[in-house]
Design a protein around this nucleic acid. Structure first.
Lengths: 225, 225
DNA sequence: GAACACTCTAATGTCAACATTCAGACATTG
DNA sequence: CAATGTCTGAATGTTGACATTAGAGTGTTC
């Protein structure tokens, strides 16, 4: 997903990925599409035989997913898909807000024209989303692009540690209450890009904050505290 | 280090740790004490024979340390101890500032009396530090306590992903320019606790920000931008 | 009947051997 | 002599077997 948006005319480094990454991707996707609902136990043995891979790469993949907050595990107790409580959602939201505040500030300040174009394309793609699942993925991808535009590697890494949890939350809520989400969200993102383009930090910060508050309100049916 | 500061009269859960955790602790300590200076290559084979453990746990430990930002690695290319550039230090500082802002706000708001006592003890311990290395460890431990007082698990996790890098930076700078660090830092931390105790968020935020800026100034010899 | 101790099993933790890959040295060629 | 091709050694990636453990189930005792 990340290597897709490389600038035309430049070639990215030809990385070769190991089995662990492959397994991580599959399991992550399986969690998002409901194959492993929250609370499921993920047994290394099962996965290793299902994916026809030995337990080594599976272990690594699970450890990686635990780092993304999708799994919880303990000594000799295996891994379980997280069940996001209301408190968890609040934690994710507050942390995300803090990170995004820095990200927006940096992006409004340093984003290159190329970065902004990438962002615009990402926002555009959302208008053509066919189903809610795809829209969620594009929503996340948009925010990925914002963080990428900051050029702040550690900030991106910090975002990566809650990214999947945000994704999981969104996916778990679509279908419950999508009223207004599908229609308004694509438009909102276009506004966000415009705000970054004018490089008006304060406006951008407020728009992003409103965007988060609105999404949280729509999806949880409650106001932020 | 974390289980140390548990409230008296309560016993923490008796967790059983695996070899991987043990290895991670040893290697981390070895990096901090200069056994593996920045740029060193950490070979799984070497570590596994040196620690008399198979490569499995070593792999896990290295992966864990990579998550803490102490190591960088690539496909079939092993792990290398990070060399913090000026840009890296700036990244760490800005991210830390953002996280700590949220942490201070939450701590000033929700910290229990017990939490504040723990913080006071942590600040007190710094006065009795015998050498710079110990002072650095206590400094980090103090900030651990601040994050712990927030009760925000994900915020603590985010801190953990840069905690070791901050530690590495501090250790790499003591001896270069410690003038004023050893003397002023313990006192500053006492002020930080007092600010949290009065629950005056704005004052606390400013004090913590000043504290970071001062430390960065002393250790790098440059002003913040 | 409830609490305790024991057993058993299925899962994770660990290990050592095998396969694959990368980086550098060396030879080759224009 | 520079650029390319090949080779080699040492490291990582992967595997399956073995050791250990948590937790459920069973039986016993008071």
């Amino acid at each position: 997903m990340a290597p897709e948006n490389r600038a035309p005319g430049k070639v990215g480094p030809a990385r070769r990925r190991g089995l662990a990454d492959e397994v991580a991707d599959r399991v992550r996707a399986a969690i998002f599409d409901g194959t492993y609902p929250p609370g499921s136990r993920l047994r290394e043995t099962e996965l290793s035989s299902a994916l026809e891979v030995s337990r080594g790469p599976v272990r690594e993949a699970l450890m990686c997913l635990e780092g993304e907050g999708l799994l919880r595990s303990g000594w000799h107790r295996g891994a379980v898909v997280v069940e996001l409580s209301a408190e968890d959602v609040a934690e994710i939201d507050s942390l995300r807000g803090t990170l995004e505040q820095l990200a927006v500030r940096l992006a409004a300040e340093r984003a290159s024209g190329e970065d902004l174009d990438t962002l615009a394309r990402a926002a555009d793609r959302m208008r053509r989303a066919e189903d809610a699942h795809e829209l969620v993925a594009l929503d996340i991808a948009f925010h990925d692009a914002v963080y990428a535009a900051t050029g702040h590697r550690r900030l991106q890494e910090a975002w990566h540690t809650i990214r999947s949890q945000v994704h999981l939350f969104l996916v778990s809520r679509i279908g419950v209450s999508v009223e207004g989400y599908l229609e308004t969200v694509p438009g909102e993102h276009r506004d966000l890009v415009d705000a970054l383009r004018t490089r008006d930090t304060d406006v951008a910060l407020r728009l992003f904050a409103d965007h988060r508050a609105h999404a949280l309100h729509v999806l949880t049916g409650r106001d932020t505290d």
